[in-house]
Design a binder for these strands. Structure first.
Length: 468
RNA sequence: GCGCCUCUAGCUCAACGGCAGAGCAAUGGACUCUUAAUCCACAGGUUUCGGGUUCGAAUCCCGAGGGGCGCACCA
């Protein structure tokens, strides 16, 4: 069967429900519209037929009558899932359902596969993720989650543009993986006969743009980390990273909480929501506690990077955490925090003043040289954002990289690689600058109220099927 | 990478050591206001794959593969 190359439609389901809300039962509007979408349900009744048609906006009933509808015999043979274009009058049936009384209609495309049980939909996770196109039609909440994500990103861009940030794009193929501590994916460029790494963070490139004079830049883009997959981890994921010249980490925390609360209001209309059945608030300001403060409070004794290492080791041992040779007091404190506090941080909170030992790109704290002016925002027990006053001293950055190289030599396969081009950039002068990173997928999970990161990724990474 | 759970018709699920079933979808038919329409009829399967135990395996055991959850890694 030949189907048309185009169909000119002039109405959406949801707009019809708005425009004709006051049309009485059994009344005819006198208005003819053209709508298009997929047949989701079909009820035939002799010389009448009722179809529920869904488009991107919602659903509208199609009311076909043998006396009115062209090719009525074919209409009643439509399959669930078929795409149709319909021209007809807007009416409300005697039973009160707003409908398009089908005059002429066209089959736009046939669905040769069905979309699952018309009541239960598709619940098999594997089928849903491998064939999201079917999931999206069978399960409206799947489409809603991806729509929320789209609205989130749109809001984020608008809110950053409003604040004079410039959106940029930086390389995904990198000669060295830099800007974070993570295992990279490796690929190969044939013509250059060179090894490339998919980026694990855009951080160093973005700071080079600040050196170049972009005082406020941001990038929303895909990162790739060669790590385990879990309900909260996809190997490719999306982050916002931004940098603002002349700001410090306090300024950046203020932006973070405002930005996220604004996004919640833009997308959901409120900052007060629930996540997985539990109340949750995006409202700013968010509490601020240093890593040392919250950990001390939690374990009931004062701990910090100045605590004797023997005591830190004992506290770790009490909690069954295996100590690694390379861990100094900073790493020990961080491990203690993660083990005792992180999972309980439900509403957004800033944890600040991370040890310099675990923050090779952050500037030393102005009041304590063992700490940095860094913050992480946590929500629902997970890290939501990370930011700091940027280290802008090239000599110290070189020394920090060299320390990372020592860790790598000692067997830490996630220690940062030394980036000489970045050090050179700092030698041209990076003004005082603060940076921020927010995991878009993680934030989308909160906004969409879903438990698995795959729900907010259209096509999440799955193990390829292979022949036995 | 490790542990636990899981895989039955296109979809949602039964059967849990004794003939592999239902609803929906599909197919044929009835029906002029349906709402997961209803009714009648018909069809649909190497029970993910490969071994094993047994008189007999969807069911028990071993292995492989996919998926879910937890741990590890991490955001």
């Amino acid at each position: 069967m030949t189907t048309p190359y185009s169909f000119e439609h002039d109405a959406f389901a949801s707009s019809l429900h708005e425009r004709f809300a006051h049309l009485g039962d059994g009344a005819e509007s006198g208005t003819t519209v053209k709508v298009a979408g997929r047949v989701m349900l079909l009820r035939t009744q002799g010389k009448l037929a009722f179809a529920t048609m869904r488009d991107s906006s919602g659903e509208i009933q199609l009311f076909a009558l043998s006396a009115v509808t062209t090719e009525f015999e074919d209409f009643v043979k439509l399959h669930l899932g078929d795409w149709v274009g319909v021209e007809g009058e807007v009416v409300r049936t005697r039973r009160g359902e707003l409908s398009v009384k089908v005059g002429s209609w066209q089959l736009l495309a046939e669905a040769k596969l069905n979309f699952g049980d018309k009541w239960a939909g598709i619940s098999d996770h594997e089928l849903r993720y491998r064939h999201r196109e079917a999931d999206l039609w069978a399960n409206p909440e799947s489409r809603l989650a991806l729509t929320r994500r789209s609205e989130l990103v749109r809001s984020m861009r608008q809110r950053l543009w409003e604040r004079s940030f410039t959106e940029v794009e930086t390389p995904i193929l990198n000669g060295i993986p830099s800007g974070a501590a993570a295992r990279p994916f490796v690929t190969h460029h044939n013509a250059l006969d060179a090894e490339f790494f998919l980026r694990i963070a855009p951080e160093l490139w973005l700071k080079r743009l600040v050196v170049g004079g972009f005082e406020r830049v941001f990038e929303i883009g895909r990162l790739f980390r060669n790590e385990g997959i879990s309900p909260r981890h996809n190997p490719e994921f999306t982050t916002l990273e931004l940098y603002a010249a002349y700001w410090d980490f306090n300024d950046m925390m203020a932006l973070t909480e405002e930005l996220v609360a604004d996004i919640a209001r833009d997308v959901l209309g409120t900052t007060e929501v629930s996540y997985q059945g539990r109340p949750f608030s995006f409202a700013a300001p968010w509490p601020r506690l240093s890593m040392s403060e919250i950990t001390s409070e939690k374990i009931g004794e004062e701990v910090s990077v100045h605590t004797p290492e023997s005591r830190l080791h004992a506290l770790l041992a009490e909690r069954g955490i295996a100590l690694h040779d390379s861990w100094g007091p900073g790493r020990c404190l961080s491990e203690l925090f993660e083990a005792t506090c992180e999972a309980d941080l439900w509403n957004p909170i800033f944890i600040t003043e991370h040890p310099v030992e675990i923050s090779p790109l952050a500037r030393r704290h102005r009041r304590d040289a063992l700490l940095t002016e860094r913050f992480e925002a946590f929500a629902v027990g997970r890290e939501l954002a990370n930011g700091f006053s940027e280290l802008n001293d090239p000599d110290e950055q070189r020394a920090r990289f060299e320390e990372q190289a020592r860790l790598a030599a000692a067997g830490d396969d996630e220690a940062m690689t030394i980036d000489h081009d970045f050090i050179k950039a700092l030698e041209w002068g990076l003004p005082p600058t603060a940076g921020l990173g927010i995991g878009i997928d993680r934030l989308a999970m909160l906004i969409a109220d879903v438990a698995n990161i795959r729900e907010v990724i259209a096509f999440p990474t799955l193990k390829p099927l292979r022949d036995a």
